[in-house]
């Protein structure tokens, strides 16, 4: 249901008591059904600061709630509950519980950036969606999203070797997201490649799959990237008042050390 048509009474707010005595009068029965107040009784000033501290969230405090982002949004067109304007407001005012209710929709942003081009205040709503999904993960409200898992595997390889090996990215991604390797579309691609690719290239591909080559002199770059990621991760955790990761290996994202 779109936000503006949202029902004011939520099923979970309807409370029925078996037996109830109010001011000495037994009101058990019909009269013991109540609707809990929807009144907001405080703002949580931390929420905007926290999401604003994550990459993409920097400009959230600019939003003036015009709704251009929601109107332009690809996902909103097919899922009316997907409403960047609304979430930005919840974050700005610190309506945390309200935001968390939508945790299973927020990550569905497809990063098309239509909102970014529509926004008159350069809020970069796409970035805010990313920061919010990130925040939900860091706070433990959501599991890692498939796209995070994909990004992690992708980055893990880049960091380890300065290169990615496509089949390995795909293989590990499917494995981690518990998807079968033998997907129809994949089988088709594989078969077509096998049939059409010049033999020399095919051998090269197989060689790469087995030996996983590194970019030359990668060690220095690798160190710099790792340091940066650790620094950023510490910074984000600090902003969210989370414990610092115990060691490099447990740093949130991406996993730093390649298996090899």
């Amino acid at each position: 249901m779109p936000i503006h048509e949202k029902s004011l009474i939520r099923p979970e707010n309807i409370k029925t008591k078996e037996n109830l005595i109010v001011e000495g009068i037994d009101v058990s029965g019909h009269w013991s059904t109540f609707i809990e107040s929807r009144a907001v009784t405080d703002y949580n000033e931390e929420l905007q600061e926290e999401i604003g501290a994550l990459p993409g969230g920097e400009f959230i405090h600019r939003c003036w709630q015009c709704g251009s982002c929601t109107n332009a949004c690809t996902v909103h067109a097919i899922e009316p509950r997907f409403n960047p304007r609304y979430w930005i407001y919840l974050i700005r005012m610190g309506y945390e519980s309200e935001l968390v209710r939508d945790k299973d929709i927020i990550w569905q942003c497809v990063s098309c950036n239509k909102c970014t081009y529509a926004c008159p205040r350069d809020v970069v709503p796409e970035g805010v969606m990313k920061a919010t999904a990130h925040w939900l993960e860091l706070k433990g409200y959501t599991e890692k999203s498939p796209s995070t898992i994909f990004d992690e595997e992708f980055s893990r390889q880049i960091i380890a070797r300065g290169k990615i090996e496509d089949t390995e990215v795909l293989h590990k991604f499917l494995h981690k997201t518990k998807q079968p390797l033998m997907q129809d579309w994949l089988v088709t691609i594989g078969r077509n490649i096998a049939m059409r690719l010049p033999v020399k290239w095919g051998l090269k591909m197989m060689w790469a799959q087995v030996f996983k080559p590194k970019t030359k002199d990668w060690a220095k770059s690798r160190k710099a990237i790792e340091d940066y990621i650790i620094e950023q991760d510490a910074h984000h955790r600090h902003a969210l008042k989370l414990d610092a990761p115990k060691s490099k290996a447990t740093a949130h994202q991406p996993k730093l050390h390649a298996a090899e």
């Binding site: 936000i3 503006h4 949202k6 004011l8 107040s37 929807r38 009144a39 907001v40 009784t41 405080d42 703002y43 709630q65 609304y86 407001y89 919840l90 005012m93 309506y95 309200e98």
Partner: peptide
């Protein structure tokens, strides 16, 4: 009433 989220408010 916070009209953008259609909720009553009582804020300190």
């Amino acid at each position: 009433e916070d009209t953008l989220v259609k909720r009553p408010i009582t804020i300190p």
